[in-house]
Every structure is written in structure tokens, then in C-alpha cells.
């Protein structure tokens, strides 16, 4: 089982909260939605380590047919011989609950949707932590990098799922436009690098797709330290 935590502050942040006054009843609604999310989410995840070869902008996943063209991913994996590919899903029941809520109460619907997104992100962090514990002492993990970040096209979702046999392993599919089904799901690539290599060589804000809107940067921080 995967343990994860739905952080209320993150739920609020996704909803655009910046210190507005919140009534007791809204607080209660949010707490209810968090509880409902835990009840409806059935976490499923899978990950696997592959040998990779990088010749920017091409990343080749060795012994498979997967070849990814992405300068940003190439930079991330520049010093990695191995990379972990991961996929996870919060399942279909939470999606049905969100859809039902859109007919019952739109306020609860957007809050529940936000809870489920926060949960998926928290699950991804938990999986990443698990991976970090499994790698050899001399290595560390790069940032987690998902399709849609930078120039890593959503078109690769299908290839990632196939690589992990994610349909059979965790019931995760990809629809048109690279949308994951169920929606509250995440796929990502994480490089494994030698600790001796300075992380700024492969992870900088310069290659980051969301550098303009990054919440970390606004606070003068970065996501990788």
C-alpha cells in the first residue's frame, strides 16, 4: 500500500487561495472533501528502472523500442545511465465521485477535484521517496519529469505506459490528446545520477517549463534543493 497525505493548504492553493477569509462551513466542506477523497481513491502505482542513452535531444531507452525526442529531458538525464519510469493512478471511483458532484454541488465538485489532484501529486512524491530508498548509496534522483513539461511531448504518454505495461499493472490508459484515463494519474521519468555530480549541471530553472509561474521561485527557492 502507498501512504500519502492530502495537504489542506495545497488543496486551497490549487483553488486560488491567498489568505481570503474562509467561513466555518467552507472549512467543513473542504475537510469533508478530503475525507471523501481518501475513501474513494484506490492508489495504484508501478515503476521500473531502465538503462538510458542520451544524445541530445534524443533519449533512447535501451532494450526497448522507446526513443524520446526532448531537449529538456535530455538535459535532465545527461548524467544518468539509468532512469526510473513511473506511473500511478488515483483510480476511477474518485473520478466518478467528482462527476457526480458536478450535478450535486459545483462548489464541492471543484474542491473534490482539487483534493484528488493534490492526492495524485502526494502519491507521486511517496513513490519517488520509495524509489529514493531503493537506489544505491552513491546515487541520487533527479527531479521528476512528466510528459507535458518543457518540450517533453504528451505524445509519449502511450510509450511510457507501454514500457511499464501500465494498462495491465495499474489499469492506466491513454486517450486522445495524451490524456491519461483515469484522469487523476501521473507518469514521470526520474534520472539516477552519481551524487558526486553537481545537480545544477542537470537541473536548473533555465530548463524548467514553468519557471515564469513557479511557486518556489516566487519565494526565492527552487524545487530541487
Amino acid at each position: 500500500m502507498l501512504s500519502y497525505h492530502i495537504d489542506k493548504a495545497s488543496v486551497l492553493s490549487r483553488l486560488g487561495y491567498v489568505n481570503q477569509e474562509i467561513s466555518d462551513s467552507l472549512h467543513k466542506t473542504i475537510d469533508d472533501c478530503i475525507a471523501l477523497s481518501y475513501a474513494k481513491i484506490v492508489p495504484a502505482f508501478t515503476y521500473q528502472t531502465f538503462l538510458v542513452h542520451v544524445a541530445a535531444p534524443i533519449v533512447t531507452v535501451k532494450n526497448t523500442a522507446v526513443v524520446i525526442s526532448s531537449a529538456d529531458l535530455s538535459r535532465l538525464l545527461k548524467y544518468s545511465q539509468k532512469a526510473v519510469f513511473m506511473a500511478l493512478s488515483a483510480g476511477g471511483a474518485i473520478e466518478q465521485a467528482i462527476r457526480a458532484e458536478s450535478y450535486r454541488d459545483m462548489t464541492r465538485c471543484v474542491i473534490l477535484d482539487s483534493c484528488a489532484s493534490v492526492a495524485a501529486e502526494a502519491m507521486a512524491n511517496a513513490v519517488e521517496q520509495r524509489i529514493a530508498q531503493e537506489i544505491d548509496e552513491q546515487y541520487r534522483l533527479t527531479n521528476r519529469f512528466s510528459c507535458g513539461y518543457g518540450d517533453f511531448s504528451l505524445c509519449y504518454q502511450g510509450a511510457l505506459l507501454q514500457l511499464l505495461n501500465a494498462e495491465k499493472q495499474i489499469g492506466l490508459h491513454v486517450g486522445q490528446s495524451g490524456i491519461l484515463q483515469p484522469k487523476k494519474s501521473i507518469t514521470a521519468v526520474i534520472g539516477i545520477v552519481d551524487k558526486s555530480i553537481d545537480h545544477t549541471h542537470y537541473a536548473t530553472c533555465a530548463t524548467c517549463a514553468i519557471k515564469e509561474n513557479c511557486a518556489y521561485r516566487k519565494e526565492g527557492k527552487t524545487c530541487f534543493n
Partner: peptide, 14 residues
Amino acid sequence: SGKIFLPQLISSAE
């Protein structure tokens, strides 16, 4: 003006 946020906007709309 950012005095209320999304769930509050929707609650008012509902």
C-alpha cells in the same frame, strides 16, 4: 480583486 476565491465564487453562483 482577489477578496474571494474560486469555491466562494461558485457558492455565490449556486
